[in-house]
Simulated assay, not measured.
Amino acid sequence: MRAVQITEFGGPEVVRVREVDEPRPGPGRVVVDVSRCGVNFADTLMRENAYLAATTLPVIPGGEVVGRTADGRRLAALTDRGGYAEKAAITEASAFAVPEDLDDVAAVALLAQGLTAWWLVRHTGRVRPGESVVVHAAAGGVGSLAVQLAKAAGAGRVIATASTPAKRELALSLGADAAVDPAAADLTGALRAANGGEPVDVVLEMTGGRVTDQSLAALAPFGRLAFYGMAGGVEPEPVAPRALQRRSVTVSGFWLLNAFERPAVLAGAYAEMAALVTAGELRVVSGGDRPMSEVRQVHEELRERRTTGKLVLDPRR
């Protein structure tokens, strides 16, 4: 079968389509014919062996697929690897039934990115009615859904950040009340200004470095910063517990892998979001439905932050 296989770590040049053996089902696993596989920023980190979990070569990247089993079931699933392929072996426990009226792009978008956005809003960020919420990278796969889920949770004001005017316009079209350039010299001041001059209650952050530091400074007493990635590649400044105590603020981390200890919660979240999408109440932003033969270019675009929404690959092309 055709698949993307990485045999050495490095840049986009190491991502190649090859002929490989088909996967075999094992205990608790089933093989699906993949109709679309998702592309995530984490895949570029795996390619460089810079992800949270170490990578062993050779590896077929890709942690999200939607497809059908031999008995006709339509499933979307998160995998540890193996998604960039015509067939993938998935764990039944991490698979979700997909309604027939949900398209492939949305079915994939609601996996890593949708479930992350849902968990950040509902659990890690604990967004309450009337609170102000900052969503960084609001034009991305997680951010575009988090903006909408925060509004649905009753957020009083959603402040989006995005790197270009077009991306900021997209965030506003999704329901954000204000949009800010994260490159602002005084990001703390810009976030507060977008909140009517007041500090903010919740920040959903995945950039790192100065963005994390200045977002933390923008928090109101009892505010929460939920950290779920470091796309900028720069560690934030260390945070002293006494500094958190002075303003009664919380900094917490989230990695979706840990949420799989609560499979029933994830299954409910996926079904809830799928129903919202099919009802027209939650919009999935497609970042491109690309042939797998263009995977190298897709990785380049993703790392250069030239993408919006959810990127998927069609392994049949």
Rank of each mutant, 00 (worst) to 15 (best):
R296I: 02
R306Y: 03
R296T: 10
V285D: 03
S286V: 04
E261K: 11
E261P: 00
R303M: 10
F254K: 02
N258L: 07
E281T: 10
L276P: 08
L282W: 13
E281F: 03
R262S: 11
G288W: 08
G288V: 05
G287K: 04
V284W: 02
Q297H: 11
V285H: 02
E300A: 12
V277A: 12
E261C: 02
E281Q: 15
G268V: 12
L302D: 02
F254A: 03
E261S: 09
R306T: 02
A267E: 13
T278L: 14
L266Y: 05
W255Q: 07
R305T: 04
L302G: 02
V265W: 01
E304K: 14
E304Y: 00
E300K: 09
L266S: 01
A274N: 12
T307M: 06
A267D: 08
A269C: 07
R305E: 05
T278Y: 15
V285F: 01
A275F: 10
S293V: 03
L282K: 13
A267T: 14
A264I: 06
N258R: 13
L256V: 10
A271S: 11
V285N: 04
A275D: 15
R262T: 09
E272A: 11
E281D: 14
F254W: 06
V277Y: 08
Q297T: 12
Y270F: 15
A269S: 05
Q297P: 04
R306L: 12
G287D: 02
M292K: 00
N258Q: 10
G280Q: 11
A274P: 10
L266C: 06
P291N: 08
G280I: 11
L257H: 08
G268Y: 08
L302K: 02
V285T: 06
A269Q: 03
V284R: 04
V298P: 01
L266R: 03
P263I: 09
V265Q: 07
T278Q: 14
H299G: 03
H299V: 03
Y270H: 13
R296E: 14
E304S: 15
E301P: 01
